[in-house]
Amino acid sequence: MSLPRDPDHDLDRLLADDGGELTALYRRLPKAEPPRRLDRSVLGEAARAVRGYTPRRQRWLLGVGSAAGIVLAAGIAWHVGQDAVRHEAQGEMPVQSAPAAPSRNQNYVPVQPLSEPAAKHAPPMAQDAVGAAAPAAAPPPAAAKPVPRKAGARAKDVAPPLAQPATPPVAPPPAAAAAAPAAEAFPAQTQRQEAEAATGAARAGAAAESDLMAKERLDDKALRTRAAPAPPSSSVELRRDMQLAPEDWLAHVRQLLHQGRRQQAIESLRLFRKAHPRHPLPDELRALLD
């Protein structure tokens, strides 16, 4: 390598677009690169900075959003718990919680154990009806209303118990064992229902089946209504909005307007204004704030 000896010429070569001979030599020096741990560290920090980004003045919204989220979660859990209790009361209680049932809810729990004896004592035809009703009876949730039963309704009331073997085939001995204490707790009622079930089971089978299906339809509808995802609360939505890029956020506001959710759109836009005070607002959106 021969470097030019004139300092000005040397400088001109260095400042030329290609950088001259010296720059070329410099580029042949070992290309030191940062270690990977630094890459990870820097990229991680950048990601945390973006994810955790909230304007300071809006941090209280996070708290409100979190509290709303917790309340929502607790509400859902409570509903699910209630559904489970109703579900158990309707179909699976004898297996899982019959021993505790008599002292807890005497209005409807005793009906569950009756199914077992009723099915046992029913004639073969009734047993067939039981078998036929079983698959359809799998999801009978909230039909168990704690209303005292009347004598005239007994024949039909046998229907839910008839459907109970949907669970017992899986574990008949525990079901029978679990049914016993509850049956003992209401001997007179049990005997009366047993007798009625034995004489009327065959006749009640078909009617019970149709009755049951109607109930199931109602219950399914109720369940669907309950299980449908609740629209996210306002603060939760706002919290989500804050994670959006400015342009996406504005697009979301427009979408809310198109959906007719004007109030939510205004709230979101106000928040946007605070989060991005320097970001220009389209005229139609600015009009919302005026």
Binding site: E33, P34, D39, V42, L43, A46, V50, A245, E247
Partner: peptide, 19 residues
């Protein structure tokens, strides 16, 4: 504006020079 991919691109382009 929150675009992490943009940062990654920027970082990969300049990390060697800076280092």
């Amino acid at each position: 504006g929150g675009d992490l991919l943009a940062f990654e691109t920027l970082y990969r382009r300049h990390r060697g020079t800076l280092y």
